[in-house]
Amino acid sequence: MYGATVEPIEDIRTDAEKLAGFEARIARGEKIEPGDWMPDEYRRQLIRMISQHAHSEVVGMLPEGAFITRAPNLRRKLILIAKVQDEAGHGQYLYHAAETLGATREEMLDALLSGKAKYSSIFNYPTLSWADMGAIGWLVDGAAILNQTMLARCSYGPYARAMVRICAEENFHRRQGQDIVITLALGTPEQKAMMQDSINRWWWPTLMMFGPHDTDSSNSAVLIRWGIKTKTNDELRQAFVDQTAPELMALGLTIPDPDLHYDAATEHWHFGEINWDEFWNVVKGNGPCNAERMTARRQAHEDGLWVREAMAAYTEKYQS
């Protein structure tokens, strides 16, 4: 930037030339920054992904937030509050990253509250016991880390940088979750049963978090071509199973998949087929908690209306 008085030099290249230049930059591993030329589709895909990601952080506060008041000791309580607070912070960085592409917070929130925008369907499953704080931290945040570590290398600078910051905190989330799972899995019979029940409920929805098979994912090809994603949904899902399945089993927990086994030939854990009907059903809004989550978000938004109006009125009266 050379200061506001300098007129931008008009870009006289044709769109095809611009696109070629853009793709060459991505091929060289350069980051695309907010003021740079980019295809409309690149901008559209990024706004969709980043705002969806932001919404997931915000909606994701609800299932765990519900256990803050019930955390079973003071140390766990402080950690859980800090974790849920981090998720709010992630939502905030991500909304900012989407704003660099021209989306506004209001538009994005409207899209969420009207049901037009999606968020990670994992948060449409209920939290039923304290053990779920372990399962969410370890499995859900763990799965998110794999996806986000990839996105930290994505071609759009502000998104990549937001991810670097977020991943550092997600690692702490995963560790606290793992710590809860270990404590319960090695605890009293009642705790073990509680933990097993939680794994039974969260395992499959976590695998669904990576999204449809690459062959069924309408966005995958273009996202990979423009360096937004560098790995496919199935690759990430496999990495997750390879990492997590043996660790859970080492704690004496059972994974609810009769087909799960280590395949020495491929050196991967083979797992059974995901129930895609359930996946699409939850994506379409018919999951166990879709309605509750949206009601909670709308309620907070409506209850906060007079507060936001007062803030605006105060600023206008006294600070302009």
Binding site: M61, L62, G65, I68, G91, Q299, A300, V307, R308
Partner: peptide, 9 residues
């Protein structure tokens, strides 16, 4: 109890 339900993020 406000965590996740505050009037602004």
């Amino acid at each position: 109890e406000w965590c996740g339900h505050a009037p602004i993020l």
